[in-house]
Each structure stands twice: as structure tokens, then as C-alpha cells.
Design a protein around this nucleic acid. Structure first.
Lengths: 231, 231
DNA sequence: AGCCTGCTGTCAGATAGTGGCAGCAGCGAT
DNA sequence: ATCGCTGCTGCCACTATCTGACAGCAGGCT
């Protein structure tokens, strides 16, 4: 990847936008296809032009969010990705989230210049039929409980057909090809448990907040699963 | 005023933003301290990077508003939908489209108010592992051909193991659980055909444009499939 | 102390940027 | 139609900017 400096600076800006956590200069240098020395020069250039990039020794660089520097418009690839993603959500997720996908895309479309708006309407990336396994569970309720870190009461039928009632701390929802799985801390078992949403007999949200942060639970669960990191 | 090109491009963008009415290239050249010839090169560079600058002979240049994304408001549901959709694309699609999904989300995040930006980072809707069936086919190339309505030359191995070479008019790409399917008009068979991307031996893009609009082909294909409408 | 990382200086060679000129094309006014 | 204004592209030689490598210092974390 050998691109001119003037273009590279904008690429670098986007790479920085992409990472939210500190990134090392070496990594940025690799991504922009340039030596470490040159990367330092590039960073200095961006800072001189007003970009608020913080660099801390031993950590890396972070782009302070909330400041707009070009290129801010979406590329064709990005539009296609947004459209395809929204279509998948619209087909796969529960009705409320599906509506959210459609609405979000519509909002994005309104701020697009005409030619890109055209891309949204005419994109021909299609999503295959969903093999939804419907349960009585209200996914909207579950997502809301996850966001608000509220305890849920589940009536659940496990894979052996045994019915149990549990209080759980919900913190993630996994979307697989045909099933949706709630990941939660189970008060009954005092451990992480997975619950297929189609096996939930009933779901009740309490007003009670569980005592830990869902990000922390997610991190610990990932470690038990041997999943390194990332969404 | 003699500044480096990389910085000058950003200055030029600011100058363009300042004017609302058309500005002549000569004036822009003077303001950025550069010859007219070079200014034309600068404008070309900005356009190549996605800036929507319109230049009309006899009038001048105008920066199409909308190059910058305005601050946007989304509901929590909409944010979750966007994040989930992007994560799915990032896991499922080809590397370029996957990067597009991540980049698009990053751009959206920068124009979000802080509390919603938080939502993007902490969303705990997860996507299961992709069961990607990789082929040698370059999906990026295929998508580009679809967008530009270019004829593709395929070396394809059908389900019986027979190898054929065909010229096709690609107009849609279907994402299923484990396979990606190109939908195209096949010149050989004079009919619509589906091609699994993992069975493509080679894909070559021609510069030749096929004689019909892809939207029309899509509509006709849908009718033959008995698919009513909608994406 | 040791490791990782940010940051600066220097230098010679590679690269890209630059202006001037010439020519074509589209638009509006005369 | 003609003219003037403007956008746009090709060409070419000159220049300066950019680049990588090496070397060294500073600051945070374990």
C-alpha cells in the first residue's frame, strides 16, 4: 500500500476513528503502509491541522471524538455494508429491533447527498430467508433489561425438558443462524449460563438492578469461554 | 503562502465551505497560494477522496453540502440495530465490505452525542461465528461489477462438477448462512442463473457494460422466483 | 530494572508535487 | 454565431518535499 501523503493523512484519520482504545504507532504505521518514523510525522501533521490526537507513552494514540474532519461522508462500500447489515437485522431480529434497523437506515439516507442516497435504494445485496425459531419470549424486553442491567425472572425449559424458574443477570444476547441465546449470570447456579430464547416459557423484568456492570460480566464470561476479545 | 499539499487540501476544503456561491478556480488558486494548474489537481484529489465538489464551466466550484455528516439522533433501538448489523457484516462478508461496516459505524459514532456513542461501544448484542465458505472469488470485484453493471467472465464448476466458462450480467448477491450466491443473467443459457461464489474458479471483470439496468433485472428475476418485492 | 511506547534529530536518495504552456469543451451573453 | 469566461487534461523539466534508517532521550507500566 503506497499512497500519497495527502491521502494517507485522511486514511490515518479514519483508522484512528475506527479504534476506540489506544493504538500503538507501530500498528498505525502498518495499517497505513508506512514506516514508524513517517507515522510520527503524519500524526504531527494532523495535530498541526487541529486534530485532537492524544499520544501517551507506553499506551498509544487515541483520537478525541466529536470533532469533524473530512472525510466524513460514507463510501460506496460503507453504504453497502450499512444496507446489508440493516437488511439482515430486519430479517433476523425481533420486530422492534428490525424496525430500528429500517428506521436508522432511513435517517442515514436523509443526510446523504442524492447519489449516495441512490446507493441505499438500489443496493442489490440480499439476505437469505431467516430460519427464525420463535418463542414466546419478548426480545425487546430482554434487550431493554440488558441495557438497563436489570434482573430477569425466567421460566425456562432446558434441553432435557425440565422446567425451572430462575433469576438471572442478563448481559448479552447472541444471534446465531437459527437461535438466539441469552447470556446471563444465573443466581441459582452461581455461574454463567446460556438460555435459548425459544425455550423460555416466560420472561419477567424486575425493577431490580444487578450489582455488577454488564461490560465486566461480559469480559469475565469471555475469559471462561476462551474468547479473546472484540465483539 | 507556501504550504504542503497535504495541508493545503484541507485548507481548500475550508475555503470552499466558506463560499456559498460558485467560486472560480482562479480565486481559489489565489487563496491557497498556488497556480491554477495545481488547483485543478487539488480539486481532483479532493473529489477522488469523496468530496462532493461540483465544477461547472463558466461558473465555478461549489461544495455540495452534505460532505460532512451532521449530528444525528438515533433511538437506543436504532443504535443497537446498527451495531448488530455492522457486526454481522464484519463477520460474514468479504474483508473489504467488513471493513466498510466497521468504518461506517465509526463515522456514525463520531457524530453521535456522547451518551449514544457510549451505546455503540457497550452494546452487547453478539453475532455467532461465521460459517464462511471461502472460494477464490473476489467478492469485492463482484460487488463492484454489480454496482457498475459490468459484464463478468466466470469460470464456474457446477454442482455436477462440470467446468464452464460464461459471460454473465451480475445484478445481485445473496448472503445465506454458509454460502454467497451471485444472481446474474447468463449469456450462455439466455436465462437467470445462480452461481455459488465458492464454486467460482476465476472471476474477471470486463469493462463492458451490460445493456440493461440492474434494478430491472432484479425485478424480473423476482417475478420468476415468485418473490413479491422488497429487499 | 526492563519493556513498551512516544518523540526528535539527521541525512541522502527517491518521489511527488509544481508551474507554464497548449489545447479542447461547455456555458452564457452579445 | 461569436466571444469571453471557465473547467479540464496532457506534457515536461525542475524543485522540494517526503521517506526510511539509525540513533538517542523520555515517560509510563510491570
Amino acid at each position: 500500500m503506497t499512497i500519497a501523503r495527502s491521502e494517507r493523512l485522511l486514511v490515518l484519520l479514519q483508522v484512528l476513528r475506527r479504534y476506540r482504545q489506544p493504538v500503538s504507532g507501530a500498528r498505525l504505521a502498518a495499517e497505513t503502509g508506512v514506516s514508524l518514523r513517517t507515522l510520527y510525522r503524519d500524526i504531527a501533521s494532523l495535530q498541526a491541522q487541529g486534530a485532537f490526537i492524544e499520544g501517551e507513552a507506553g499506551l498509544g494514540y487515541v483520537l478525541n471524538p466529536g470533532f469533524m474532519l473530512p472525510p466524513m461522508m460514507f463510501s460506496e462500500e460503507e453504504i453497502e455494508a450499512l444496507v446489508l447489515g440493516s437488511r439482515w437485522v430486519a430479517k433476523t431480529a425481533d420486530p422492534r429491533l428490525a424496525a430500528g434497523a429500517v428506521d436508522a437506515l432511513a435517517k442515514i439516507a436523509t443526510v446523504l447527498p442524492p447519489d449516495l442516497r441512490q446507493e441505499v435504494d438500489t443496493s442489490t445485496l440480499l439476505v437469505g430467508p431467516a430460519k427464525r425459531q420463535e418463542g414466546r419470549a419478548d426480545l425487546g424486553l430482554i434487550r431493554k433489561a440488558i441495557r438497563a442491567e436489570r434482573i430477569l425472572e425466567l421460566a425456562y425449559e432446558d434441553d432435557k425438558g425440565t422446567l425451572t424458574t430462575r433469576r438471572v443477570w442478563p448481559f448479552a444476547l447472541g444471534f446465531f443462524d437459527s437461535v438466539r441465546v441469552l447470556v446471563a449470570w444465573c443466581e441459582l447456579r452461581q455461574d454463567f449460563r446460556h438460555f435459548r430464547t425459544d425455550r423460555m416459557i416466560s420472561v419477567t423484568s424486575t425493577e431490580q438492578r444487578y450489582p455488577r456492570r454488564r461490560q465486566v460480566l461480559l469480559k469475565e464470561w469471555r475469559e471462561t469461554q476462551g474468547i479473546p476479545n472484540g465483539p
